[in-house]
Design a protein around this nucleic acid. Sequence first.
DNA 1: CGTAACCTTGAACGACTTCAACTCACGTGG
DNA 2: CCACGTGAGTTGAAGTCGTTCAAGGTTACG
Lengths: 254, 254
Amino acid sequence: MHASDVKVKERILAEQPRSLTAPACFHCPARTSHLCRGIPDAHLEELFATSAKVHLKPGETLILDGDEALTTYNVISGTMRLTRLGSDGRRQILAFLFTGNYIGLTADQTYHFNAEAVTDVELCAFDRKRLDTLFRLHPDMEKEFRQMAGKILETANELLFTLGRRTAVERVATFLLFLMDAQRVPCEAAPEQRRVSVPMTRTDIADYLGLTIETVSRAISKLKRDKVIHLASAHEIEITSYPRLRRLAAAEVE
Amino acid sequence: MHASDVKVKERILAEQPRSLTAPACFHCPARTSHLCRGIPDAHLEELFATSAKVHLKPGETLILDGDEALTTYNVISGTMRLTRLGSDGRRQILAFLFTGNYIGLTADQTYHFNAEAVTDVELCAFDRKRLDTLFRLHPDMEKEFRQMAGKILETANELLFTLGRRTAVERVATFLLFLMDAQRVPCEAAPEQRRVSVPMTRTDIADYLGLTIETVSRAISKLKRDKVIHLASAHEIEITSYPRLRRLAAAEVE
DNA sequence: CGTAACCTTGAACGACTTCAACTCACGTGG
DNA sequence: CCACGTGAGTTGAAGTCGTTCAAGGTTACG
């Protein structure tokens, strides 16, 4: 169904040139991510030494359901999606991942989801074992990791509420708020500044929100008709009225 | 809406008599839980010293949305529910918790859900700070904790797929399989042995599966009519045909 | 033994899906 | 340079599944 998917795991940990004197980590957009911020600047070399860069093109597969979880990843740039496929083709997107988000929290040594690139993606790959060692050396990393796990669960819980108890329009409104948040779009800026980029297709949005493409499209059209949003293009949405969008997302946890 | 809810947090950490010579932990049903099994028998005293027993009656509230997350808990016996309430009363149950399950994985120092007792519940309360100290002393606990976080997320992901992509009957079938699993009901036992106890109300099941009570009831009736299950009572269900139940849960991740 | 909460069932309604047609943007090749 | 093809998005009409509204039945507990 998703034809362009290509397995790239094989080339992931191919050795890359290392410079011990220029830790790229310092200026990494994901430096402040939960995974990396627990380590002090002075020890950045250690982190750098355990990492390897990975590049993905749109549609490429990083992880296949059932893969051994030997390697974990941090998103540096771009958008990833975590999906689960039913035997009859039904698909549920479990999460969209952006800069600083981590892939690798598992119960056992196996991944139970697929991870695919939505856009061009830059990742940082970490060997799980070596990361464990690093954790033992830097207790702060450990603590940050626990916080991160909490955040991941919090996001999942948010989505659970959306899927279980929100209507189609509410789901789409919630999703736009989610994108605003992820892209740090200021909610109190000039209307023209409140522009959200929507890197994923309608199919992805539908599979994330437990709807069909048609319903997603209709919900967006309704928001447009009601002048809550304005479509610069199908993948560039301006938030015309943030308060009304919030009200529409409704059933918010206060 | 849930009238009998009573706040009991106040009496949770009231000092309880401690016996340094008889660590109750050793025979605790939750000894093998992810939280506790990382600590060796020889050091069980330390764990015991940081813990306090809590008893809850059905309907009692342990945690209210917004509470400071100073204390975390391990379920010893009984069933808990984690819920999230919408401003207009909509409710989504995020998880059901049984023996060995942990409450306390958070991103910040605040709980963003309610935790309530479904049945009579025994809990073990741990001060978060002291638990942190224990983690530092016993790296194995830390590692178990990470695994546990993975398991919690895995369960949430399972539910995400159910809410997003399964029909009503499939959801209920999936839920029964979930209960079988939680209660370690052998799937290949004599039909009479394959009895699942359903401690929660239809309302709880509905709020867990993103349905209404009526739909849950109808789905159960359909499973009954199709002789997949048999109701000993509304809260005692016998799995007449495990294979067919599995097939009905469908869209299983292979 | 009575009452209230819980569960079940039926009928009408409505939200989302399904099926289908059309538009639009983009890229390739004639 | 434009024609054509493809994939993505939108919109309409019909259908379906789950909800809502309503009533009756069952269970549990004081």
